[in-house]
Design a protein around this nucleic acid. Structure first.
Length: 486
RNA sequence: GGCUCCAUCGUCUAAUGGUUAGGACACGGGCUUUUCAAGCCUGUAACGGGGGUUCGACUCCCCCUGGAGUCACCA
């Protein structure tokens, strides 16, 4: 069997972090089996349409470097063009198909026209809830005669099409959870065609999954209870259903379903906060999935090899942001110099990325950074040293006179050095030698030197600072410090 | 409330009948050290409860408890 997976987000203008995880699982499954990964846009809710949302969604796939085989793809000019033989891949362009199957269901007696108004339905539900009953359509319109229906429809009365839920039970083998069974008596007669002519999610998804030959439907756990509705629809249409696998929820720290209100839910916001795509993908892919080893860092290819639906956990997972930070730091340290520059550039508007000092400073400071956004602050003292108190220059075990003497001494020593500025190690060796020959303690020299170069109580080491700043600027800063102490 | 899913350190997880219940993040201590990080070493910390099955249960079954999801002309 060819594996064909699909992700079908509704275009709300951003990609939910939970969607990203499902995307990754779909991606792993498809790539591992030489199958196809399809992106389909589910925009049947006209009320929730957001301008440019599809493009922004597709742009996120691009930013993450996630390729898919079929679906609308973003071009450089900002427009999207569909690829694949099962199009269109946007549901609002497939209305005719849904209508055709809706008619088929109605003709076969599997669906019926309903004229009930929103008001009546609401009253009915309120009454049922008051009686502690499960809200469910009372099938008032099921008994309407054929003539009455055509008369009222002919008169233009607003109506929907509901599927007539059969009796009995329905069960399916969840790819992650195993067998799940439902009693159809508990399930409402779902609206499959809305009064605006659009198909509801249930019909659209069943038709699309069938027509697009989807073999595996991975989606969030919140969809479990709607699965029987779709299975019944598949049966009514005489189609075989795909494998359904319900992925556990991503949770807020209080264990409820991750919500906007309690934290960041969009992939874009994580990217904007300075998380690297690789880190985010590694983190989210191993949340609820573990290849059964102690390894924490996985490349995308490793995950493609190791992914196994049956090893996906069944319980929800709280996002451990501290761990994401740790992982992001790891990936930042892993970057080549050029890759680091490219990654941080968007976070450093107005900074000259070709400046040797900037490049070196970024290589030095990456050690102290967990998110890309933190670089701006770390970089500032390299570009221009801030105001600082002369007292800061004095090491706790020494005095101002000593600080001045040592700064003067190192400055002179530095004056003789040229080649040493090539690497941090050479600078360290030179400074250490100076300290050694003069019989000094490290702190006597290193503390004032570091403060003179950084202007701060806390900073990178003086060797790193010297290397990043270069000889000329370093000497200038030391001279300025000496003047301060005068 | 009905239906459904779930249940190992604070969090993410490993263990698929026999382990001193392992790892990671976070936290504590130590080493290194001019400061801050990083790094290295190390410590605290978990099987929700009760019944079974079994020579033996974190692992299998049942019940309870707890948590979550879902019950729309939203997906």
């Amino acid at each position: 069997m060819t594996i064909r997976t699909r992700i079908a987000p509704s275009p709300t203008g951003y990609m939910h972090i939970g969607t990203l995880r499902t995307v990754m699982f779909d991606y792993f499954l498809a790539r591992q089996n030489d199958g196809q990964f399809i992106v389909r846009i589910e925009d049947t809710d006209q009320a929730r349409l957001v301008d440019g949302a599809v493009e922004s969604l597709l742009a996120t796939f691009k930013k993450l470097g996630l390729d898919y085989d079929e679906g609308p793809m973003l071009h450089d000019d900002g427009t999207s063009v569909e690829h694949g033989d099962c199009g269109p891949y946007v549901q609002s362009a497939r209305l005719g198909m849904y209508k055709q199957y809706a008619d088929q269901l109605r003709d076969a007696g599997h669906a019926y026209v309903c004229f009930c108004t929103a008001e009546r339905l609401e009253e009915m539900r309120t009454a049922q809830t008051a009686l502690k009953q499960t809200p469910k359509y009372d099938r008032k319109c099921l008994s309407l005669s054929g003539e009455e229906i055509s008369t009222r429809v002919g008169a233009g009365e607003r109506h929907v099409l509901r599927m007539k839920m059969p009796e009995g039970t329905v069960a399916f083998e969840d790819g992650i959870r195993g067998r799940i069974e439902f009693n159809l008596a508990d399930i409402d007669d779902q609206v499959i065609l809305k009064s605006d002519g659009f198909a509801s999610y249930h019909l659209a998804v069943v038709v699309d999954d069938h027509l697009m030959s989807i073999s595996h439907v991975l989606r969030g756990e919140e969809w479990i209870s709607s699965t029987p509705k779709q299975i019944v629809l598949h049966d009514m249409l005489g189609w075989t259903m795909p494998v359904y696998a319900h992925v556990p929820l991503i949770l807020n720290p209080d264990k409820t379903k991750l919500s906007k209100r309690k934290g960041d839910v969009s992939v874009e916001s994580y990217l904007a906060k300075g998380y690297l795509p690789e880190a985010l993908i590694n983190f989210i892919s191993t949340l609820g999935f573990n290849p059964k080893s102690d390894q924490e860092i996985y490349t995308r290819d490793e995950l493609v090899q190791l992914f196994d639906l049956s090893k996906v956990n069944r319980s929800g997972a709280v996002m451990n942001i501290d761990k994401l930070d740790w992982m992001n730091h790891h990936y930042i340290m892993q970057l080549t110099e050029d890759a680091l520059m490219t990654a941080v550039e968007p976070f450093l508007p107005g900074v000259d990325m070709t400046s040797p000092t900037v490049r070196r400073a970024l290589m030095v400071e990456r050690d102290r950074v967990q998110r890309l956004t933190e670089f701006a602050e770390k970089l500032a003292p390299y570009i221009a040293i801030g105001e600082y108190d002369a007292a800061t220059l004095v090491w706790k075990k020494a005095d101002a006179a000593d600080a001045k003497a040592q700064l003067t001494g190192v400055r002179d020593a530095l004056g003789a050095l040229d080649g040493a500025f090539g690497t941090i190690a050479l600078l360290e060796a030179a400074i250490k030698e100076y300290i050694g020959t003069n019989g000094l303690q490290n702190g006597n020299v290193l503390w004032p030197l570091r403060v003179a170069l950084s202007g701060a109580e806390k900073s990178a080491s003086p060797y790193e600072l010297l290397w990043a700043l270069g000889k000329e600027e370093s000497v200038a800063r030391i001279d300025a410090a000496i003047t301060k102490l005068a």
